[in-house]
Design a protein around this nucleic acid. Sequence first.
DNA 1: CAGCATCCGCAACGATACTG
DNA 2: CAGTATCGTTGCGGATGCTG
Lengths: 128, 128
Amino acid sequence: MVSEAKNNKRYRCPVEATLDVIGGKWKPLILWQLKAEKLRFSGLQQSMQGISPKMLTKQLRELEEAGLVLREVYPEIPPRVEYSLTEFGKTVLPVLDALCEWGNKYLDRECVLGKNEELEAADGPALQ
Amino acid sequence: MVSEAKNNKRYRCPVEATLDVIGGKWKPLILWQLKAEKLRFSGLQQSMQGISPKMLTKQLRELEEAGLVLREVYPEIPPRVEYSLTEFGKTVLPVLDALCEWGNKYLDRECVLGKNEELEAADGPALQ
DNA sequence: CAGCATCCGCAACGATACTG
DNA sequence: CAGTATCGTTGCGGATGCTG
């Protein structure tokens, strides 16, 4: 996704570039998890219940290639890899906040307009 | 996408809801087009070169169901349908702006880091 | 532990033709 | 003009098994 983006993708507008980098099913969650703390692969996997290692790896590599995430490998036995946000990566946090805030507005509105059963409008990405 | 969202989708975080509503390949462009002016179906189709009528219809219906877009049908011959942003729809514009702004930062950075050939970092969603 | 390899279903997206 | 209807393609994301 990102790799292709860097190599050959032409965006019709910068919004597309952003969505390409921080969009998708997992990337926002990953970035949110890394907001506060450096995390290991297994830590991230547990934070986001249900993601397969393959998928997590893929997302992390893309975020790394985009320059948002730093991957530190400690050549130990057993292996240890830690992921954290780069300085540039931290610049997306306000964007994520904006998305989150509007999402809450949208969900509240949907709720008010009827239709919904139950709805915990979490204040941030929180699992379950 | 949105319809399913309203009916049965449970978001793990509000960011996902937002991306579901304004994300995807076409929705940001459509919203951007409608930012300034009310547009007819054919007008939108031309603004976004390459979209098929089926796709455009689908995106517009989803935006309509999400409450962002107003669809006005004039029962004339030939038919005329005009699309515009609702008041609620206008509340996403700042979010789009944020996405756009960060996208430009990202693209500039990618450019500076080498690799890119040509890159017109448009100031907003502008076709070609 | 932190992954890579492989296979695969399904939803998104696209092209074209046709209609009230 | 503003769409439907139909068919085809693509690739995201998931499941499972294996490795240094």
